[in-house]
Structure formats: C-alpha cells, structure tokens
C-alpha cells in the first residue's frame, strides 16, 4: 500500500532529517492496515534514533499530533483508524522549541 508519511515539529530528526517519506507498506492479503500496524512499521523501518521520542507504550508519545489525510486522528479512532491506498499521514511533535 502506497502511503505518504510526513514528520514535522522536530520528529524528522529521528528519521535522518527527512520530512516526507513515500513508502510502500505491506499488509496481509485481505487485512486492513490500521494506524496501530503503521506505527509498528514506522518504528521498525523509519525511526533511526531515540524511538522513545516517538512512541510511548503502544501509541505515539503524548504531545505528538497525528493527522490522517489532514484530519486529527482523534476524530477517526486513533489507533483503530484504517488506512487506504494513497493516504497521507502526518506526525508533528509539539514538544520542540518555542
């Protein structure tokens, strides 16, 4: 599944300072890809350092905003949000700088 992932607010520093990643995430046949799956995938494949800045327990660290297709994931069920082909997911940290 083709997805566009964007890291902002300082999170890009955790993945080689690259902000936008066009990625292809595999999911099992017939299975839906949820944000929960995607987070696990991001952690393994994109986050190069200090994963604790990004994740806490099984979700993003409090203070990291997530938008799926430019919509707050709190409106779409957070970890249960299902993703579709060509979706865009944005992660922004609120914790850096002022």
């Amino acid at each position: 599944m083709q997805l566009t992932l964007e890291f902002g607010g300082g999170l890009e520093l955790l993945c080689d300072s690259v902000k936008v990643h066009n990625v292809n995430v595999d999911q099992g046949a017939g299975e839906k890809l949820t944000m929960k799956n995607l987070l696990a995938w991001v952690c393994t494949n994109l986050i190069k350092e200090r994963p604790e800045m990004f994740m806490k327990e099984d979700t993003v660290r409090p203070g990291v905003l997530v938008l799926v297709n430019d919509c707050d994931w709190e409106l779409s069920g957070q970890l249960d949000t299902t993703l579709e082909e060509k979706d865009s997911v944005v992660f922004i940290s609120t914790l850096h700088g002022g």
């Binding site: 297709n69 409106l75 299902t82």
Partner: peptide
Amino acid sequence: VVKPKKNIGAGR
C-alpha cells in the same frame, strides 16, 4: 475536495 474517507468516524 479533500478526498472522502471511509474511516471510522471520518466524514463527521
């Protein structure tokens, strides 16, 4: 114009 979503709760 933003592409419609079929996600849980999306389109609210």
